[in-house]
């Protein structure tokens, strides 16, 4: 329990750091960013949008930075992330809440599948070293070096077409309205297959490699030899002795890879024009829509923190040593 509370405190601290970073980044831009945006758009921005920008960049009043900071926090707690000016006057929170479920489902499901598949293959490759599984290594090395979005482009090029099963873009058929019915759900699944496959192929190799290396390291430990000497079946030794111990660094390595997978997913969404947060971020970038960009960054960070907390709970269940008091 103490371990869990420590982790919770750490994630709260990280969330605070992310929000603070988000607060300071636009304030570090030299000059008057709003004015340069206004000139860039040459009168296309409404006066309300300009006003919203000045509030965001903290240039509207002579309040000191501390007061602004407190006001910023108050805004966040009321769920107000500002107004997007690509979709003016829609609030940023509304745009994000409409696109977040797409990303969460896509990343969530593929990450879980990829973790279990990769870990399983890694156990096999590490335990049966010198068999055909060694051939997996060069392939996975190559695949893990390929950028996610390029793999997406190749997938679109090879697998989609006028009469292909896979649609090349979007999240559902253009004639449908998002709803939980028998027309929408199959269409959404069909559209998500290819992006999911792309993420799966690029992310699974990392799990295979790290799990394989941990299995090899663990396989020469004394307790494995003892387990063999006791006459336990090979399968039992592999799963309950070697894999269980080798799994721990993989679970704790979740933190780093999750941020990376999420980053890659954003790109895959862009390539497939998938209606998730990544595609939204892409549109915001093209329009220099700072409120939307920052809101998206904040939401992504908080989602990753929550996922990390879940991984920590899994670690707690897997490793009894962390449960001991003191």
């Amino acid at each position: 329990m103490k371990y869990f509370l420590q982790r919770l405190a750490f994630y709260l601290f990280t969330a605070w750091a992310a929000v603070t970073l988000n607060f300071f980044i636009p304030r570090m831009i030299p000059g008057d960013p709003v004015q340069s945006l206004v000139t860039k758009y040459q009168g296309q921005l409404s006066s309300q949008a300009i006003e919203a920008l000045y509030v965001l960049f903290g240039l509207d009043k002579d309040a000191n930075i501390w007061q602004e900071y407190v006001a910023y926090w108050k805004q966040l707690f009321s769920g107000d992330l500002g107004l997007s000016f690509t979709f003016f006057p829609t609030p940023v929170s509304e745009i994000i809440s409409s696109s977040l479920p797409w990303t969460l489902l896509l990343v969530g499901i593929t990450t879980v599948i990829s973790f279990f598949l990769g870990t399983g293959l890694g156990i096999l490759a590490g335990w049966r070293r010198g068999s055909w599984t060694d051939g997996l290594l060069p392939v996975t090395t190559f695949l893990s070096s390929v950028p996610y979005f390029w793999l997406g482009i190749i997938a679109i090029y090879l697998l989609t077409g006028p009469d292909s099963f896979f649609p090349s873009s979007g999240g559902f058929d253009s004639g449908l309205v998002p709803a939980w019915d028998q027309y929408f759900i199959p269409s959404a699944i069909q559209h998500s297959l290819l992006p999911a496959l792309t993420i799966l192929i690029s992310s699974v190799s990392g799990w295979i490699l790290s799990m394989r290396n941990m299995m090899v390291t663990v396989a020469s430990e004394d307790y494995i030899t003892v387990a063999h000497a006791k006459g336990l079946t090979d399968r039992r030794v592999a799963m309950s002795y070697a894999a269980r111990n080798a799994l721990l660094p993989n679970v704790s390595g979740f933190a780093l890879s999750l941020g990376f997978i999420v980053g890659g997913t954003l790109l895959v969404e862009i390539v497939f024009s998938y209606p998730g947060v990544g595609f939204q971020l892409f549109q915001a970038l093209g329009a220099s829509d700072y409120p939307l960009m920052q809101g998206i960054f904040l939401i992504i960070t908080i989602s990753v923190l929550v996922a990390n907390l879940l991984a920590d709970i899994a670690y707690l269940l897997l490793d009894p040593r962390t449960r001991k008091e003191g």
């Binding site: 994630y11 990280t14 941020g259 890659g264 954003l266 960009m293 960054f297 992504i300 960070t301």
Partner: peptide, 13 residues
């Protein structure tokens, strides 16, 4: 903290 914050979105921002 830097380890957990997703790097790519941060770099983009």
């Amino acid at each position: 903290v830097f380890l957990v914050i997703p790097a790519l979105p941060l770099i983009i921002i």
